[in-house]
Design a protein around this nucleic acid. Structure first.
Lengths: 252, 252
DNA sequence: CGTCCGGTTGAAAGGAGTCAACTAGCGTGG
DNA sequence: CCACGCTAGTTGACTCCTTTCAACCGGACG
């Protein structure tokens, strides 16, 4: 059952309603499966601020910016990164349409990372103070918001696992498997997709160098696991890729 | 200004009140500086469940356990860890008195990591459903809760940075500096403390082997940065340790 | 007194990084 | 339209940091 089907299984939900709502803001895509009814959705609509386009390479927010909004990605891809004390970057994540940005900023009212668009993108601004007010009257939304924050925590924990005790091959396999499953959850192909980020950004995220990524790509290609052409990826053997990720298959 | 001073600067707060409240649950220590008044504190008291003692080596919760409670550490130290698909552990954090455990479980109603006591410890159970109910009526608490979740996100991001682009020496320095600052924030010495975790657990957390930790300890000792005796640590040169953490000082 | 466990130290091995040369694709401007 | 230069990516050779393997130490405990 795809996410769309889950959404349509909601009481009172029609394809037209769904289209109309989802067109407004990806926050709806996030909220619909959680049991929000149409009345709740309308209230949510009212607090959602303006849409904002961000061109490829443009920044949505920077480290240190005062925190006022969360951002729901409507369209496109982003990366978030931190800057080390010595000036070096660390990519902390890649986000796609339907995901929420800026939750790390709540703790200190300042953004702790920067967000940059990997392609021309569009977001909805969600003024956090309005959202928090709304959360008080809408238990379902409150619950959902907490789930989203918690999900971000678990996501980061799995990256810690990746960086903490996986070898290069396993890390890269895990990266591809993760991307594939996220595209699949959004109704796109899990076996053919485009990398929106550069080799350098992938390497930075995985704690590897650009050369290592290049070599791993070549290796997977040689072993018949994937087909690669520039940033175009086709997964030929998802099972084995998952086995490598799990550490079942020892890759040499 | 220490945390205790901040707390005492709150209107209507006396040393006795503070003692009484903090004795009940470390959640109060967390909440007091955030502007909760005494009435709010009492309401919080009412939902806080039983205290629970966990002996050294005992587990508070395990991966896969159904999620019902958050836990505020009253006393002692814990570690949280995940299990990889191939069965290997990854320590995701060390928690001390005054910190909150279990927030990663909200997203899927199951715990995503296990929590084990590093010494005889005590926690307060906070039934999450009651807490969420209370959050609706107490904007200050709601805000505070969101801050705590967000703080966990930023904490993990800094671990990602540590694992993603720091060398062994820098990682270990960062680990010590982080511990020191947390003890300081709790009113303990920032220069002399005891490691509650084994070399193995430190290594696992930092993505290094037990031997590497041992060597780094010896190295820092030789360079006059610290004094070590078993698990007793004394920081002799905090400035240089911070410089190594920051990557300013290149350590050889 | 022997054994076990946590920790230390040394020597060798290996995986990823660094350095460097090279290729391909793409936009610009003559 | 082609040449040029720029950027992103690839590939090879070598280096180095951390791991691995192994021996050893010392305190706790039965």
């Amino acid at each position: 059952m795809t996410q769309e089907h889950q959404i349509l299984a909601m009481p009172g939900m029609t394809v037209e309603n769904l289209r109309a709502k989802c067109a407004t803001c990806s926050m709806h895509q996030l909220c619909l499966p959680m049991g929000l009814d149409m009345g709740d959705m309308d209230k949510l609509d009212q607090i959602i601020g303006r849409r904002r386009k961000v061109v490829r390479g443009g920044t949505l927010f920077r480290i240190g910016d005062p925190f006022t909004n969360l951002y729901a990605i409507r369209l496109g891809h982003f990366k978030t990164y931190q800057i080390n004390a010595n000036g070096s970057e660390q990519v902390t994540g890649f986000q796609m349409a339907g995901e929420l940005l800026g939750m790390d900023a709540i703790s200190a009212d300042r953004h702790h990372c920067s967000a940059e668009a990997l392609e021309d993108s569009e977001v909805c601004e969600i003024p956090f103070s309005s959202l928090e007010q709304l959360l008080r009257d809408m238990p379902t939304l409150l619950r959902h918001f907490h789930r989203m924050m918690s999900q971000e925590i678990t996501r980061e924990q799995s990256v810690m696992l990746l960086l903490g005790n996986m070898q290069a091959t396993q890390r890269f396999a895990a990266f591809l498997v993760n991307l594939a499953s996220r595209y699949e959850a959004r109704g796109y192909s899990a076996t053919a997709f485009q990398l929106r980020m550069s080799r350098e950004e992938i390497g930075n995220y995985l704690g590897l160098t650009i050369e290592s990524i290049s070599r791993l790509l070549a290796k997977f290609k040689k072993e018949g696991l994937i087909r690669v052409s520039n940033r175009e990826i086709e997964v030929l053997n998802p099972t084995k890729l998952k086995a490598i990720t799990a550490g079942t298959e020892v890759c040499n």
